[in-house]
Design a protein around this nucleic acid. Structure first.
Lengths: 355, 355
DNA sequence: CTGAAAGCGCTAACAC
DNA sequence: GTGTTAGCGCTTTCAG
């Protein structure tokens, strides 16, 4: 009845070898005869052996170092959450002798991204957590990881060209579809729906266009309605121009809804929409940022889609840790698309407190 | 740079005693002279000694046993998820010598609840995970835990009278409010909204009335609309009567929405509503059960509120394990109220696969 | 009361 | 190639 946990010693006995030999094959350190290797592996498989993590980390005095290349948390609330998630993960794993070192970069400056990543890689960490928000530069960095043989995990957005240990984040196409659904939900009449990308540097942000594809496809496939879906790219730097264009958009007679894909953009649009008057124009934005929450409470924003950047970062570190300690390949971690309204907002905020 | 971590051995040397003696005072096991005690305590304070938990659990060969008192997973898909969560948690913790023993009871029979709980307590576990779905009986059980000095964690629903290590679950009042919001969202005209409790034994289910309170308060506080909120308790055992009453309800001329609080009830109501014709009657139910998912996809159910019973159970065991191994008091774990629509459904299903 | 010593399961250095 | 063994930091006998 009491399932006996099997140990290295047990395997050794079963295979008629010493623990040293078993340890060698477990860690693929080589220097083992073909014969023993096979015999031991077979027993390991059959018994479903799992190493005792406590004993392992206690026995080996090795400490694993993980570098995290993420935007400067001071610059942006969204990335502050990521940073918190990393801190929390480190706290959880420090007892297993995992160290995490953040390498922040300037969210609006590609060159610092490359610089931070280079510094991170130069320190020869055992693993890397990377937010590849600059597409071309990220490809460079990944190439360097491959060369240096450093395993890495991507989070926030994926890179089709990369083959990371795993990707942690959301399906952005589905996210765009969800945004469209939330905008059109129970709308009695058809009309115009817009997806807005308001960014400093749009050229590199391929991940936003994934959302747009989902958004457009949703309306394309919507039966029995002739809606118009439009996508608009706006630049954040010229605030005057930005506001003018937005006000024009808000003037569209049959405008039904807006999906704002960037965090900074949401507050601008919200403020303008508030001034302009809701007039039944629905607004959907992303993430539980302070300003977004405030506009949600006021009823200017109707829904938020939560991307849970804190948890993403946390899971990223956890996967890396598990890989380093257990050599366990992490599963792909697609996150759910969380819908936030006024009524379930508090439940999410409370959940974050209890971690 | 590398702050030297101080060990038992270090303290022993500083105090001119043996590690055995230090260990005795650390654990207040007595049998130590006043003199040594003071000397050692002083050093412990001064150095800020923290025991190495890995070594601690490895050294003491103690096996911790946790009992889980939950409904029979065969009876109900919702509780099957809980059971899965417990299994997963056990798998994660077994290597740290944590054992979990389920004590299932009949979901529809209070007496078996008490019986299972008694058996669980009699086996003198080191901790207990309890789903207190029968109010009065649960109070009894908790009293027994207190007497036997067994720490316990509640999940699924809370008990105001209890003081568990922690509660893992959702705010049911907020849940009722959310249900109400989802039903009335964008409804152009006011009308009747009903919350339905379809259960075998309604008398004891105080947690359902929490939802109802939230539901009613939402409509009470809704400005500029004169809606009628009604609560209906129905018995599942007489299917004929049940269907008759439901059909009557569906005939209500200005019926706008239905919130079904129990999992079994949802499928009955959905089927009837499908036959009757949606006619703009909105339907909100709970949890990602197979039938609910199917009705959501068909558009009969508009929203599901996910309670994530698997994760609840998992977290419950994890908290208990952390407490037993590391003496870490768990935080209160309120879960977010997850909103599921057709568009984000897959993202939740996918997330569950990668766990 | 106190110290010595044998583990806990695993790692890694070192013989053979 | 393989076995042996000394730790990792703490717990827990067991003498004295």
């Amino acid at each position: 009845m009491s399932k006996k946990v099997i140990r290295l010693k047990d395997i050794a006995k079963l295979a008629n070898v010493s623990v040293g030999t078993v340890d060698r094959v477990i860690h693929k350190r080589g220097e083992v005869s073909e014969d023993s290797y096979k015999k031991i592996m077979a027993i390991v498989e059959k018994t479903g052996y799992t190493p005792n993590l406590l004993a392992r980390t206690l026995g080996s005095n090795k400490v694993f170092r993980i570098s995290a290349v993420i935007p400067n948390p001071e610059q942006d609330e969204y990335w502050k959450f990521s940073s918190d998630g990393i801190a929390k993960a480190e706290k959880d794993w420090v007892q297993y002798s995992i160290q995490v070192k953040p390498h922040p970069f300037d969210l609006y400056d590609k060159s610092t991204f490359v610089k931070s990543a280079k510094a991170a890689i130069k320190s020869r960490p055992d693993g890397l957590l990377l937010a590849p928000i600059f597409h071309n530069e990220a490809l460079e960095v990944i190439e360097m990881c491959n060369k240096a043989n450093i395993p890495y995990v991507l989070f926030n957005n994926n890179l089709a060209e990369a083959k990371p240990l795993t990707f942690v984040g959301q399906d952005l196409y589905a996210s765009g579809q969800l945004g469209a659904e939330l905008l059109s939900l129970s709308q009695k009449e058809s009309g115009t729906y817009a997806i807005l990308h308001i960014y400093d540097d749009i050229s590199n942000s391929t991940h936003l266009s994934e959302k747009e594809k989902g958004f457009r496809d949703y309306f394309k496939n919507l039966k029995g309605a002739k809606n118009k879906a439009i996508g608009i790219d706006l630049n954040f730097t010229h605030k005057k121009t930005l506001e003018k264009e937005l006000n024009e958009l808000l003037g569209t007679p049959d405008l039904r809804g807006l999906l704002v894909t960037t965090s900074k953009g949401a507050s601008v649009v919200s403020a303008l929409l508030e001034k302009h008057g809701k007039n039944g124009i629905r607004l959907v934005a992303y993430d539980l940022l302070a300003e977004n929450i405030s506009f949600l409470k006021k009823g200017i924003i109707d829904f938020l889609i939560n991307q849970n950047s804190k948890q993403q970062a946390y899971v990223g570190i956890t996967h890396l840790s598990n890989y380093l300690l257990f050599k366990k390949l992490p599963p792909n971690s697609l996150f759910p698309l969380e819908i936030i309204t006024r009524q379930n907002l508090n439940s999410y905020l409370a959940a974050h407190i209890g971690e």
